[in-house]
């Protein structure tokens, strides 16, 4: 059990550190990092390379945004299996609908409640 948490920490932290290396080396913006990591996650999943990482590290692989890419690719593959051509279009978003809808609706609610504050540092 605790070994699992260690694995989660090591793998999840490592993926984040790769992002930080990119920031330092290239001054890349956060939007580009997110795009890049989603695409990498989806490609790894498509080649069957991401699933072993999820089995090994659990949330350490699903919480980083690469896990979002993995869901997109996994959803597309599954939907194509079940529905054929239609699955190409429905698969990706169906698998990630929960995350996107949650992000949108919570952002909507909290944006109505809160206002932005000046940065102090």
């Amino acid at each position: 059990m605790w070994l699992m948490y260690l694995k989660v920490f090591l793998v999840g932290g490592f993926i984040c550190m790769l992002g930080q290396i990119l920031i330092i080396k290239t001054n890349i913006t956060s939007a580009r990092i997110l795009v890049l990591f989603v695409v990498i996650g989806a490609l790894l999943e498509a080649f069957g390379l991401y699933e072993p990482i999820v089995t090994f590290a659990g949330a350490g692989a699903t919480v980083p945004i690469t896990g979002f890419g993995r869901s997109l690719a996994k959803g597309a593959i599954q939907a194509v299996k079940e529905k054929g051509i239609l699955g190409i279009f429905t698969g990706g978003l169906t698998a990630t609908a929960g995350g996107i809808a949650a992000a949108v609706i919570f952002a909507y609610i909290f944006a109505l409640i809160f206002s932005s504050k000046t940065k102090k540092f």
């Binding site: 999840g12 932290g13 993926i15 984040c16 550190m17 790769l18 992002g19 930080q20 990119l22 920031i23 956060s30 939007a31 990092i33 997110l34 990591f37 919480v63 980083p64 945004i65 690469t66 896990g67 979002f68 995350g99 949650a102 992000a103 949108v104 919570f106 952002a107 909507y108 909290f110 944006a111 809160f114 206002s115 932005s116």
Partner: peptide
């Protein structure tokens, strides 16, 4: 990147411009 790469960073990038 420690708070950008996790899904929480995705959530932050949607909520912050909305606010």
């Amino acid at each position: 990147a420690g708070s950008i790469v996790p899904i929480t960073g995705f959530s932050n990038s949607i909520a912050s411009p909305a606010i």
